[in-house]
Simulated assay, not measured.
Amino acid sequence: MKIQVQNSQISDIDTIFQFYDMAIAHQKKVFNKHWQVFDRALIETEIADNRQYKILVEGVVACVFAVTFEDKLIWGDKDADSIYIHRIVTNPEFRGYSFVKEIIKWAKAFAPSKGIKYIRMDTWADNEKLLEYYTSCGFEYVGVIKMEETEGLPKHYEGISLSLFEIKL
């Protein structure tokens, strides 16, 4: 089976939003929190900056995710030398493919050319299922933070606590 991680293109934007809609519907079913609708300009900027990715399985988009290289509002002074993974969404038809592990492999290969020393992620602090899953994928649990400042972040970050995870490279 051929799995590829590629930069998303502007032609993928409708697919990305379909994935986000699927994720929000799923979150509403299985958890007490969910993402809000994302600003199209944010996704367009991520695509233009080569920070929005897709995972293809045999040429079919199976997963999408975004990255950033700064996350000061969440990580504070630990902000440097890192790649931050956000908004991983798997098409339900491809559940069980361990895409988080594929993203980790991709990030480890990507890191040396960018001077990256950490792969980092966050999720809602009370999402036990994801806490267990991310640690089973190799992330170290770093702790919990309460979001105080959220200007510039998606709306779902307002007033929440986050669990933080990292892999030191």
Rank of each mutant, 00 (worst) to 15 (best):
L56E: 01
G138I: 08
L56Q: 05
V61H: 08
K155N: 13
W75A: 09
K108H: 12
I43Q: 14
T135W: 11
D39R: 05
I43L: 15
E46R: 00
F69I: 05
E151I: 10
E140N: 14
A48R: 13
I145D: 00
I74V: 15
R40L: 03
L130N: 09
Q27Y: 04
F139P: 08
K72W: 11
I145E: 03
V30G: 07
G115Y: 05
Q27S: 13
K155R: 15
D49I: 00
F110N: 01
H26T: 11
I145M: 11
V89T: 13
A48C: 03
D77S: 13
L130E: 12
N32H: 15
Q27H: 12
P92V: 04
S82M: 06
Y118M: 03
V37I: 09
Y141R: 14
D39E: 14
F38I: 14
V64E: 04
L130K: 03
P154R: 04
V61W: 03
Q52H: 12
L153I: 03
K108C: 09
F94I: 06
Y134G: 10
E148Q: 12
I119H: 07
A66V: 04
K108F: 08
V142S: 13
F38A: 14
E70M: 06
I47R: 12
N50S: 09
A62I: 00
N50A: 09
V89P: 02
A109R: 12
V144H: 05
N127I: 08
E58C: 07
E58F: 08
I104Q: 04
Y118Q: 12
F38T: 05
R120L: 04
